[in-house]
Design a binder for these strands. Structure first.
Length: 280
DNA sequence: ACCCGTGTTCGCTG
DNA sequence: TCAGCGAACACGGG
């Protein structure tokens, strides 16, 4: 269920559950093959087993769980467990022997009697072992921009990249090289907050609009994070109230101008929500 | 049965 | 070489 805020919550959970713990065993379900590709389940389990969790980092929607060498302290032989949650991935903790969650695909058995389950219904997520425990060492993530929450948003860089794109701004925002962690929901929410029409060409935004968009996306992230820090994760499909301003609210009155009727359109085969009256 | 989905990746085109 | 685009991946819920 991940855009940046949900992945940040997952990172905090994993730190609380696993930092300093050793993996006494790793179990992989048959269907998890596609999550692990190109690594085989056997190699994955054997490589991870016996190592301790030394760090948990997040960059955009990516998690990197730092694993110690098989025996001694940090240094040579450290590995990273790179986790992307796809559309339906989630890390859960259960006591050993408890009823596993549905669609549990990979299980990390810890030395404190708990088991971390990687659950993923649709199997769009990824789990891979990489040589290092830091994002800078992961070659295929080099193109990603700095994390918007950790580093803040570099408006000059954002403006430069947008100026080169001929696509609609909403579509451009889904490119993780710009602001890693922005997904379909927060792209719509950020544009609403910045009062920018999602159909506008990315290169048409003024410096002031780029600034408003950066602010709007951060505000949307922070609001979602605050909502999820509560006891229960509130999400559209879980029957809770819709916590968003425009997402999945087509037909409703605009919460800002109170006169526009929120609209839903398709862009790049994804839904976009906006107020046709106050987004220009 | 049909449509939809908080994401990425692949193959094709210009 | 590369931006852009549509399909594909897989499964459950309305």
């Amino acid at each position: 269920m991940p855009e940046l805020p949900e992945v940040e919550i997952a990172a905090r959970n994993l730190r609380a559950w696993a930092l300093g713990r050793r993996l006494v065993a790793v179990e992989v379900d048959g269907k998890a093959r596609r999550l692990l590709r190109p690594t085989s389940a056997a190699v994955f389990a054997r490589s991870a087993r016996g190592r301790a969790v030394e760090s948990v980092r997040r960059l955009g929607k990516h998690l990197l769980i730092g694993l110690s060498p098989p025996t001694r302290g940090p240094g040579e032989g450290s590995l990273g467990l790179l986790s992307h949650l796809g559309m339906t991935g989630k890390w859960l903790r259960r006591q050993r022997g408890a009823e596993p969650p549905s669609h549990s695909r990979v299980r990390l058995l810890l030395d404190d009697g708990a088991t971390l389950h990687y659950r993923d219904t649709r199997l769009f997520g990824r789990l891979r072992l990489v040589p290092g425990a830091r994002f800078g060492e992961v070659a295929e993530l080099k193109a990603l921009g700095p994390d918007p929450l950790e580093q803040g948003i570099d408006r000059g860089r954002l403006a430069r990249l947008l100026a080169r794109s001929r696509r609609p701004i909403k579509v451009a925002l889904l490119d993780q090289r710009l602001l890693p962690g922005v997904g379909n929901i927060h792209a719509s929410e950020g544009l609403f907050r910045a009062r920018i029409d999602p159909r506008r060409r990315a290169s048409s935004l003024s410096p002031a609009e780029v600034r408003a968009l950066a602010r709007g996306i951060l505000a949307s992230f922070r609001r979602a994070l605050a909502a999820e820090e509560g006891p229960e994760v509130v999400y559209v499909e879980e029957g809770g109230d819709n916590p968003f301003l425009v997402y999945a609210r087509e037909g409703e009155r605009c919460p800002r101008c109170r006169r526009g009727i929120l609209r839903r359109i398709a862009q790049a085969q994804r839904a976009t929500f906006y107020c046709p009256r106050c987004q220009r």
